[in-house]
């Protein structure tokens, strides 16, 4: 069975859109645009995230990001990074939509510069307002099961709990919570932030999340293009493993061949 056949029976739908990949890829911090584009291509990601910033009017050359991405139709997920409260996030979201690029928005509100952890109360407020304005809202949030449910009720199209703080590569700090979030969810759950390697990705997918959003672990890997491929395969492997139902863990051995009946004596 090919990957696309597997996906045909196991689609990921967000905001009414059927996505071709469970890999959401960030576009920051790559060594150069060529490596970035190769990583995007190899990842087979459909959803790409961006940030919105003031144009540097002295040096307005750094907006090439969207110009090279014509090789495939992508779904663009701008974020509200830089916002420290709901009002700022709402303003950035409206700007993002005014570009005409997308009405998807990743709500990202950090009130602490050291941890960049999301502010849950402001995130909930912004999600409510933006969902009511017709945005497809994907809030980045803490790994709290009740909060994730509240975000869903506020109109989030998918909920994106962090595995660990952004860019740390610490992996999934609270797999128990992520498991509960998945069990309770009525919308897709995307692990966003904190992952480091393919092992973390497989763990996330085996916990039953619907997808993974990464940036730093790909962009800052020694070989970002290969890492993009590793992450893609990890997502597929983890998803298949989750769907296939792993064996229970046991304390003692069970032989792979029947042991007693036909034993050579």
């Amino acid at each position: 069975m090919t990957t696309s056949q597997q996906q045909a029976g196991d689609p990921l739908i967000i905001g009414g859109k059927t996505l071709s990949s469970r890999f959401f890829l960030g576009t920051g911090r790559y060594p150069n645009p060529y490596v970035q584009n190769e990583a995007i291509r190899v990842s087979e990601a459909e959803v790409l995230t961006f940030a919105i910033r003031r144009i540097n009017l002295e040096e307005p050359e750094d907006d090439a990001i969207l110009h090279h991405l014509s090789f495939k139709p992508f779904t663009y997920l701008p974020n509200t990074s830089g916002a420290s409260n709901a009002d700022e996030a709402i303003r950035i979201a409206r700007m993002a939509r005014a570009s005409g690029l997308s009405d998807w928005i990743k709500v990202e509100i950090s009130a602490n510069e050291r941890t960049l952890l999301p502010d849950p109360l402001e995130t909930l407020k912004a999600t409510e307002v933006l969902a009511a304005e017709g945005f497809t809202v994907l809030p980045y949030t803490s790994d709290d099961p009740i909060l994730c449910k509240r975000l869903e009720e506020a109109g989030a199209a998918a909920v994106m709990p962090g595995g660990a703080p952004i860019g740390t590569g610490l992996g999934i700090l609270n797999p128990y919570n992520i498991g509960l979030i998945v069990e309770e969810a009525g919308v897709p759950i995307i692990i966003d932030a904190g992952l480091g390697s393919a092992a973390d990705v497989v763990q996330a997918m085996e916990l039953g999340v619907d997808g993974v959003l990464m940036n730093t672990p790909v962009a800052k890997a020694v070989d970002p293009v290969r890492m993009a491929q590793a992450m893609k395969l990890a997502i597929e492997a983890g998803r298949l493993s989750y769907l296939s139902g792993r064996i229970p863990k046991k304390r003692y051995a069970t032989a792979s061949s029947e042991y007693e009946a036909l034993k050579v004596k």
Partner: peptide, 10 residues
Amino acid sequence: IELVHFVGGG
């Protein structure tokens, strides 16, 4: 006047 654009981000 504010002029903004998209940049790389996660």
